[in-house]
């Protein structure tokens, strides 16, 4: 008998100084009943991964508008794996071209959300995905 809630960390790697989008997503996820750790601007991939490890989150969402996603996103993934958190549901969003989305999705990212994705869709997608995971864990336990 456990009281599991979806825990999410929203991180903004790199130097991009706009966090409106990240804050919007964080507050919509909260409205969908999730517990959201927001770590603020200017995080290094190592800081995001270390915070995710300490917080033991189920989901890590990265937001980036600077265009540096192909450099930074995979580094966050590597830092997560190095801390034994390679199994988190890793998602990203921002201004990301379709080709890059495809390549990241084939490379450890569960899902990339392009600009204009309704935030409610993001929340619903995460919820459905996590329900499946919790169910699987329940069967294994």
């Amino acid at each position: 008998m456990t009281e599991r809630r979806i825990r999410v960390l929203i991180g903004k790697p790199g130097l991009d100084g706009h966090d409106r989008g990240a804050k919007t997503v964080a507050s919509v996820l909260r409205d969908h009943g999730m517990e959201v750790v927001y770590t603020g601007l200017h995080q290094t991939p190592a800081m995001i991964a270390e915070a995710a490890a300490q917080e033991d989150v189920d989901v890590v969402g990265l937001s980036l508008l600077s265009g540096a996603h192909m450099a930074l996103f995979p580094r966050v993934r590597d830092e997560l794996t190095a801390r034994g958190k390679g199994d988190v549901l890793l998602v990203g969003g921002g201004i990301i071209p379709h080709d890059d989305m495809d390549s990241l999705e084939g490379d450890g990212f569960a899902k990339l959300f392009g600009p204009g994705t309704p935030t409610t869709d993001i929340a619903t997608w995460i919820q459905e995905e996590m329900e499946k995971r919790f169910e699987r864990e329940g069967e294994e336990a």
Partner: peptide, 13 residues
């Protein structure tokens, strides 16, 4: 909703 925004950590960045 039972959700929460956990923001204390930002200050201990």
């Amino acid at each position: 909703t039972g959700g929460a925004l956990l923001g204390d950590r930002i200050r201990m960045d």
